[in-house]
Lab assay of single mutants.
Amino acid sequence: QAPETKIVDKSRVACDGGEGALGHPRVWLQIPEDTGWVECPYCDCKYVLKGSKADAL
């Protein structure tokens, strides 16, 4: 199944896999201003900063 994409309001987000005990260790991710998105290294969930150029795609 394809990784999930989430639109977020802040450039710093936490990801834990979203499945409680079945998820992964919580990691904090920083969305770079130049790209407007970041992917979780564990679950490949893509976080897109709302209003960024990546959000316009």
Score class of each variant (00 low, 15 high):
residue 10 K to N: 12
residue 44 D to F: 15
residue 29 L to Y: 02
residue 9 D to H: 09
residue 5 T to E: 08
residue 33 E to T: 08
residue 56 A to W: 14
residue 3 P to A: 12
residue 3 P to Y: 14
residue 11 S to M: 10
residue 40 C to V: 06
residue 55 D to K: 00
residue 6 K to H: 15
residue 3 P to M: 14
residue 9 D to F: 12
residue 34 D to Y: 05
residue 49 L to S: 05
residue 13 V to F: 11
residue 54 A to I: 08
residue 26 R to A: 06
residue 27 V to H: 02
residue 32 P to W: 05
residue 4 E to T: 14
residue 15 C to I: 00
residue 4 E to S: 15
residue 18 G to A: 09
residue 12 R to A: 11
residue 13 V to P: 04
residue 40 C to T: 07
residue 41 P to I: 04
residue 20 G to R: 04
residue 14 A to E: 12
residue 14 A to G: 07
residue 18 G to P: 13
residue 37 W to H: 00
residue 27 V to S: 00
residue 15 C to N: 00
residue 47 Y to S: 05
residue 24 H to M: 02
residue 31 I to Y: 02
residue 7 I to N: 04
residue 28 W to H: 03
residue 25 P to Y: 05
residue 39 E to H: 13
residue 47 Y to D: 08
residue 40 C to M: 08
residue 33 E to G: 06
residue 7 I to W: 08
residue 17 G to S: 02
residue 25 P to S: 13
residue 52 S to N: 04
residue 22 L to C: 01
residue 8 V to E: 05
residue 24 H to Q: 04
residue 53 K to C: 08
residue 53 K to I: 12
residue 21 A to R: 09
residue 2 A to F: 11
residue 48 V to C: 07
residue 25 P to H: 08
residue 51 G to R: 00
residue 49 L to T: 09
residue 50 K to L: 08
residue 48 V to Y: 05
residue 38 V to F: 01
residue 16 D to Y: 11
residue 25 P to G: 06
residue 23 G to P: 08
residue 51 G to S: 04
residue 40 C to S: 04
residue 43 C to G: 03
residue 40 C to F: 09
residue 37 W to G: 07
residue 52 S to P: 02
residue 41 P to M: 03
residue 23 G to I: 11
residue 48 V to D: 02
residue 13 V to M: 00
residue 37 W to T: 04
residue 32 P to Y: 06
residue 46 K to T: 08
residue 57 L to A: 14
residue 32 P to S: 07
residue 55 D to Q: 01
residue 39 E to G: 10
residue 46 K to H: 06
residue 18 G to W: 04
residue 41 P to D: 02
residue 37 W to N: 04
residue 11 S to Y: 10
residue 25 P to E: 12
residue 23 G to T: 10
residue 57 L to S: 14
residue 20 G to T: 05
residue 40 C to A: 05
residue 15 C to H: 00
residue 3 P to D: 10
residue 9 D to T: 14
residue 12 R to K: 11
residue 29 L to D: 01
residue 14 A to D: 08
residue 18 G to H: 13
residue 23 G to S: 14
residue 31 I to D: 02
residue 8 V to G: 01
residue 39 E to S: 13
residue 14 A to M: 09
residue 25 P to I: 12
residue 24 H to K: 01
residue 14 A to P: 13
residue 36 G to E: 01
residue 21 A to N: 12
residue 14 A to F: 14
residue 24 H to E: 04
residue 13 V to S: 00
residue 25 P to F: 10
residue 6 K to Q: 11
residue 11 S to H: 10
residue 26 R to D: 05
residue 42 Y to W: 10
residue 34 D to L: 10
residue 24 H to T: 03
residue 42 Y to P: 05
residue 42 Y to E: 11
residue 37 W to A: 04
residue 34 D to I: 07
residue 40 C to E: 05
residue 45 C to I: 15
residue 7 I to A: 08
residue 56 A to T: 14
residue 38 V to G: 00
residue 22 L to Q: 11
residue 47 Y to L: 09
residue 2 A to S: 13
residue 13 V to D: 03
residue 47 Y to A: 06
residue 30 Q to E: 13
residue 25 P to A: 08
residue 2 A to G: 12
residue 9 D to V: 09
residue 9 D to I: 07
residue 23 G to H: 10
residue 36 G to A: 02
residue 29 L to T: 02
residue 39 E to P: 00
residue 1 Q to N: 11
residue 52 S to V: 13
residue 54 A to T: 05
residue 3 P to I: 12
residue 24 H to W: 02
residue 7 I to T: 05
residue 16 D to F: 10
residue 54 A to M: 03
residue 39 E to T: 09
residue 38 V to I: 13
residue 3 P to F: 12
residue 37 W to V: 05
residue 53 K to M: 10
residue 57 L to W: 12
residue 10 K to P: 05
residue 25 P to T: 08
residue 36 G to F: 03
residue 7 I to S: 04
residue 9 D to L: 11
residue 32 P to M: 04
residue 27 V to G: 02
residue 37 W to C: 01
residue 45 C to F: 15
residue 22 L to N: 12
residue 49 L to F: 05
residue 50 K to P: 08
residue 8 V to W: 04
residue 6 K to P: 05
residue 2 A to P: 12
residue 36 G to S: 04
residue 12 R to N: 11
residue 19 E to H: 06
residue 4 E to V: 14
residue 16 D to V: 11
residue 12 R to W: 14
residue 29 L to S: 00
residue 17 G to L: 01
residue 4 E to K: 15
residue 17 G to A: 04
residue 2 A to N: 12
residue 19 E to R: 11
residue 39 E to A: 12
residue 17 G to P: 05
residue 19 E to L: 10
residue 34 D to M: 05
residue 21 A to L: 11
residue 16 D to H: 07
residue 42 Y to V: 13
residue 18 G to I: 03
residue 29 L to F: 01
residue 38 V to K: 03
residue 28 W to R: 00
residue 21 A to T: 11
residue 12 R to M: 13
residue 35 T to K: 08
residue 49 L to A: 05
residue 15 C to S: 00
residue 21 A to M: 12
residue 9 D to E: 13
residue 56 A to K: 13
residue 56 A to H: 14
residue 26 R to N: 06
residue 42 Y to R: 12
residue 44 D to S: 15
residue 16 D to N: 05
residue 5 T to P: 13
residue 11 S to G: 06
residue 37 W to Q: 05
residue 28 W to C: 05
residue 52 S to H: 04
residue 47 Y to E: 08
